[in-house]
């Protein structure tokens, strides 16, 4: 629904103190409209700072964040409306649940936006569906839910604000493989159906390869690589040099090439590798 353009963005933590640290250094990226972009980078690469920039929780020292053609800080008083347009789901979002019922908690954002009651009702029930929460759970206290259900309730709380851009920081952290697959495919289905632009921050190369349309790699406060998963993961050596990894199956493809069987280095899912190995099939 909207693209976010980052222009010449820089940010320094603790300016003027002995702990001064350049977190973002002249960043230029565009997070495309109507797709899932993966943001990867080792801890301290500046990706969390960047995420806080996208919805105006932090204000850049220099440079611009342009949402739908307009600088979000053009009118600092209206920054809270930007927070509704760019929904942010933090790491372990279940720890922010607070209201008596799941339904009320999900309605917190829409209510702050000033939606009418019937709009809220609709937004909540849609979000509940997208997040894959069983409808009978929404009258319960959020604290009686299981870990995975809490995560979904928190996700629904942001989806209910109908953001144009949805940013998720490690949405699958701490979940078991089944729950991981479930929540990530929910997010993908939501993106495909609603047309929202989605940005996922994650450490899991396998997940990124499976669910993202584009991947941006950050290191030392600047983006160092950008492209489709095939493009990015085929440059494994560069990824290793910035302290990152590639999916295991990409390593197999590299080893195969060394053994004289070249199925290409742009392999990043098992399905893909299988297709190339068995000939024809996928892609």
């Amino acid at each position: 629904m909207a693209e976010i353009q980052i222009k010449d963005l820089s940010y320094i933590y603790g300016k003027g103190t002995p702990y001064e640290m350049k977190a973002l250094d002249n960043v230029n990226i565009t997070f495309g409209d109507n797709m899932i972009t993966g943001l990867i980078g080792h801890t301290g690469s500046g990706k969390s700072t960047l995420v806080h920039m996208l919805n105006g929780l932090l204000r850049p020292d220099s440079g611009q964040v342009i949402l739908g053609g307009k600088d979000i800080w053009a009118d600092p008083k209206k920054i809270s409306s930007v927070r509704f347009r760019v929904g942010l789901v933090m790491q372990y979002p279940e720890y922010q649940l607070f209201d008596e019922t799941v339904k009320k908690d999900i309605a917190f954002g829409p209510k702050n936006m000033g939606m009418k009651p019937e709009e809220i009702e609709k937004a909540v029930s849609e979000a509940v569906k997208f997040a894959g929460l069983r409808p009978e759970l929404i009258e319960k206290s959020p604290f009686d839910l299981s870990g995975g259900q809490k995560r979904r309730a928190a996700l629904a709380g942001v989806m209910a604000m109908k953001p144009e851009v949805l940013v998720l920081d490690e949405p699958a952290a701490g979940l078991d493989p089944g729950a991981r697959r479930e929540i990530l495919s929910r997010i993908r289905d939501y993106q495909r159906e609603s047309g929202t632009s989605v940005i996922i921050v994650s450490h899991s190369m396998e997940d990124m390869a499976m669910y993202c349309d584009r991947v941006v790699v950050m290191s030392h406060g600047t983006p160092v690589m950008e492209g489709t998963p095939a493009e990015v993961f085929s440059r494994a050596d560069e990824l290793f040099s910035v302290g990152l990894d590639v999916p295991e199956v990409t390593k197999v493809a590299r080893a195969l090439k060394e053994c004289g069987v070249d199925i290409g280095l742009d392999i990043y899912t098992v399905k893909f590798a299988l297709g190339r190995l068995l000939g024809g099939g996928e892609i």
Binding site: H52, N55, L57, S80, R83, F84, G87, L88, M90, P93, Y95, Q96, F108, G109, N112, M113, G157, V158, M161
Partner: peptide
């Protein structure tokens, strides 16, 4: 962290 999370929901 919590303040930021709730701010992101318009608090």
């Amino acid at each position: 962290k919590i303040m930021n999370a709730q701010r992101a929901r318009g608090a």
